[in-house]
Design a protein around this nucleic acid. Structure first.
Lengths: 208, 208, 208, 208
DNA sequence: CATGAATGAGCATTCATTCAT
DNA sequence: AATGAATGAATGCTCATTCAT
């Protein structure tokens, strides 16, 4: 008689999880549209069509919401990129796919990207350190870590020439990041595919 | 007795100008220390040791203050870089100096740099467009313009090989920008001089 | 199989009663620890390890809970005191035991005492009258009533001299109350036993 | 031409002082009428006919307001009592006037009294200690201190017999306090004058 | 009987701005 | 030129309460 009903617990946490997802989605939209500075819990609530208090019910804090959102966004992009990279075998191929998929992710989820930027450049840890200054020190930037791994492997195997891995990695990431900052809407002079191909060419020469 | 005094008007606007400078200086310090989000007019006023109302008197708006500050900061950094670049003759040399001085500026005026970042990534135009998305469309990013000019000239003169100028410029700027974001304090793995030299080497090969 | 189970109704109300007790106990602890102002239903619920809604289920109102709690606390202390008083025969003995046991109760159930104070001084009736202003008008302050009875009986029997019963009763209660307010922790200059003995001596002379 | 104008500074701080007085007066009224628990800054502001933000402008904090208010109230009542006490010469007379004026103050400023009670019994220090538990430990309860002084002097001079000063002082204060709690409105069974006289008589006998 | 989900009302506080002086 | 005084709007957050399950 009850066999199709999921157990109460599961059901409840399912609802809560769905709500959390909904709130996070609304937060992404809001951040994309009006930016971090103007994004408030009540604006997010309005976007989600719920009461402000409900956000406080599901997240202990505003910073808790932002942290969870940040983690989701980072996980989403790194999963996208790393799964594609890991399908390649040689460092050179991996590097190309890394660039390609990093840029492709931006084209595919532009609002995720915008939200990610807004948080990273604006939010600060409780110790008042901007997230963008944390990038390197902590080893939780898996993307940067992977990029350096690729470069290191390429040098070991003799595929790449001699260069400072640290600087090269920064340069590649910088080139990718510049694109996502400068070309949010599709009015860019250089379309994503061209940009991707040209960047690969340049990097190929630089790493040769 | 009065003969050395400038006429009243001039005097007044001189005082006003000094006040504006003082406020802007306080704003830079505040932005550097607590970030854009927490920076309020009253915090700036407290830093400057004046009343909040006086800021409103000298600047029509909070965004007016931020705009004027942004212009000052951009002008300061571009003057620093461009004067040095213009002393060189060949595109190659110019490019090296461009990279060198761009990075050197960060080491010399770290708080200017931090403030610049805070505004660019947080403030928005009245039309709600983040400043960082404006970079390209407007032609008022003189630094990026100069960089492209150098690259173009280098290709024309045969000093540089074939590459997409747009992408190459982004990459160089990205590499510079990454440094300033990741290494705000002096705990960096790679010191500024090494970074500068290595970046020049890589770019040399890439543009070769 | 069911024969040992009490009828459903009884069982339910038994459970309900136990729940109510549990909630009241948690309320006492919370009031003692953080005070009336900071005590909220959710704090009480957390202390009890139940959901907030369950409190609303068992008590119609926050003020309902506080009222029932207040009654419990008054009943508890008056039972403690009155049973001891009633074992004595002469007014003088009764008066001594009254003082002794009033003070002893505070030492025995300090958290009850603290909670009682917190409610009396903070909660208000629906008509917005503080409980501490109700003491006298209503005849439900059985302790004060008993104290006056003792004094009256003592005067009738010639054991006590002439004095205004009302004022004397207030004074004795005041002396007792001051102790419980001023010496909550055991860092008091005067320990409870000394205080009790000295107070009895003074009252003896005053009533003589 | 300007000679009648007070200097700007003085004038400004005079306005501020007046505003602060007004706010404190409104706070007293509000505390008296609706009690500490329901008293909020916006209720006080409404009572004063000003905006909530103006309170925040003149007081750094809600607790700042409450602290200043508490100090005012304590100062007001202790000045009232102590000036009268100091006009007497013998400990016995001083004691009588102490009791008399303590009770008279309550009749003269009933709302001050109510507000004082509400704060003392409800507000807590940042360390979460209720004010009523602070009474003794700190030596800033000048009234209690004076009472003990009187008793001590009386014993020294042989006017009073032997008793524990600490306990006696508590008893007298308790008797006074009970009156102010139990008889806020004028529906009391025992009027203030009778209460005062009877209390003096009893204390006379107790201290004899 | 018990809970999680949800809300509207209220809280203290900060903000950018205006205005009289 | 400069300030203190003042405000309305908005912020993040907690609360007591309701309701479907």
């Amino acid at each position: 008689m009850n066999e199709n009903k999921p157990p109460v617990e599961e059901n409840q946490s399912f609802i809560a999880e769905a709500r959390r997802e909904q709130i996070i989605k609304a937060a992404i939209k809001t951040l994309d549209e009006i930016g971090y500075v103007k994004t408030s819990l009540s604006k997010i609530a309005k976007t989600a069509g719920i009461s402000t208090a409900l956000i406080s019910y599901h997240f202990s804090d505003k910073s808790d919401l932002m942290n969870q959102l940040l983690m989701k966004l980072i996980e989403s992009s790194s999963t996208y990129i790393l799964t594609r990279v890991q399908m390649e075998s040689t460092p050179r191929e991996k590097l190309h796919v890394f660039i390609e998929s990093s840029l492709a992710y931006q084209g595919t989820y532009p609002s995720h990207n915008a939200a990610l930027l807004e948080i990273i450049f604006n939010a600060r840890t409780p110790e008042n350190i901007p997230y963008y200054k944390l990038n390197d020190e902590e080893e939780d930037d898996v993307i940067l870590h992977e990029l350096r791994e690729i470069l290191r492997e390429g040098q070991e195997k003799g595929e790449f020439g001699a260069f400072n891995i640290h600087v090269m990695a920064n340069m590649i990431q910088g080139a990718i990041g510049e694109y996502m900052m400068v070309h949010p809407n599709h009015t860019q002079k250089v379309d994503l595919e061209t940009y991707s191909n040209e960047l690969i060419k340049i990097v190929q020469k630089a790493t040769g």
